[in-house]
Design a protein around this nucleic acid. Structure first.
Lengths: 239, 239
DNA sequence: AGGCTATGTCAAGCGAGTTGACGTAGAGAA
DNA sequence: TTCTCTACGTCAACTCGCTTGACATAGCCT
């Protein structure tokens, strides 16, 4: 029954809950984001959200049709927060690197919402602004249009893909996340050099490296290769 | 109570269920993958899996400690299917490219399962074989160990991240997927050149390029950059 | 032939999202 | 001020998720 939700403009009463809290869609979204940040991904359940708000869990359904509806609202809020305050330096590599790391970082801050949002094309203002900025950086740097579009595509998809991948790891229930990390020591580090020479030779490096996100290095590789193509393809272009 | 599970080597009886099915870990994994493929990721519940198998849902717990345990087995099976029948050529770039595209393709064949499994570390046989193969390719090519591990990490995560990203697009409900694609024509292609010059100038290229996966191009960029680092770092190596 | 036990089944427990019914607080009109 | 109307907070219950303790039995091993 989605008809429980009253559209924003028609809301009238600001009736406090038993515990004295005056609810609003905004307050619910903020509380949900805080809940995820404080107690991990599993903390976001309607029951716990109700408790954190000081209201009956079902009160949430007066503001959102479903938990999915709520999560989309959260994602939208996060897109807004992500873009905040970035300034270009004029150097294409520095700027792209900064944008990539920013996208990645902002999604990591809210893994559960990231999982939902990372693979959608919204076409909304914040997304459009980002596309225009990235294309501008590439074209100003001298990439021919066709190449600029391909690099843009690879760059954005790689950023979002890694953001979602790393977010998924963070959003995992605690025991599963621990198990995934443990595998490198419990399983890979103990393989016999006779049967698995390459793993055995690099096990110590693997266990150290796999703790971190592979994104920064992958990003550097992408920018390296893009730079090489820029040098060979667009040699005589003006900006 | 994880002690319900009897390790493979100790299994003795092959007792049929009421409906006459003889269970096995393999059969359960295959059935689960089929279930997901036919009815979407949400179809994978222990109850439905039991029904599809022709067994009581709790019978699954005689073979897997939990649904997460089952999920890891599914992930490993997909990795195994990706490697099936692959033969190295001896050229590191050709081999890595083939493996990357194979992993991507294998996950695309089961988008719903890929969404659940792509970001997990299984530590099981198929995954271990893949890790050993990839590390072997890199070290044989002459990458120093530390660099080989970093490239391995970036390569694998890039493959899995794109696999999950593209799987998510395929797994989307039809109307949502159509909407996401439509955005490029309905929104981006109509932006004013005065306010969004870079998007306007490349809109025709964008709408064409964004239909495809960005992975093959991103993979080529990664291999380009890795090759450059191999040339500069390991100049005098054999292999 | 007989026993041991692996394993399929049953029933129940807990916690998730969700919703129908109900009562009341409180804004708006007179 | 008072009256009315309804938004919305609350309660209780439903479905469905995973999981597990207890039980019964099939079938391998000696």
């Amino acid at each position: 029954m989605s008809d429980r939700v009253v559209p924003e403009p028609q809301r009238r009463r600001r009736r406090p809950t038993k515990q004295g809290v005056v609810l609003s869609a905004e307050l619910i979204v903020d509380t949900a984001i805080r809940l995820i940040g404080q107690h991990g991904a599993e903390a976001l359940t309607v029951r716990r959200l109700g408790a954190a708000l000081g209201a009956d869990p079902s009160a949430v359904y007066r503001y959102f049709h479903s938990t999915d509806d709520l999560l989309l609202a959260i994602a939208d809020e996060l897109i807004g927060r992500a873009q905040h305050g970035w300034q270009p330096t004029g150097d294409w590599r520095t700027d792209l690197r900064a944008i990539g790391l920013r996208i990645h970082a902002s999604y990591q801050a809210h893994p559960q919402a990231a999982l939902l949002a990372a693979h959608r094309t919204t076409g909304r203002t914040h997304e459009i602004a980002a596309v225009e900025a990235i294309l501008g950086i590439l074209r100003t740097a001298g990439f021919p249009d066709a190449e600029a579009v391909r690099v843009y595509h690879a760059f954005v998809d790689q950023s979002l893909a890694f953001a979602a991948l790393d977010a998924a790891a963070l959003a995992l229930p605690a025991p599963a996340a621990a198990a995934d990390l443990q595998v490198w020591q419990a399983s890979y580090a103990r393989l016999d050099a006779a049967t698995h020479p390459h793993i055995a030779a690099t096990a110590h490096l693997l266990t150290a490296d796999m703790r971190r996100s592979g994104y920064p290095y992958a990003l550097d590789l992408l920018l390296d290769a893009a730079g090489a193509r820029l040098r060979s393809a667009g040699a005589g272009h003006d900006g």
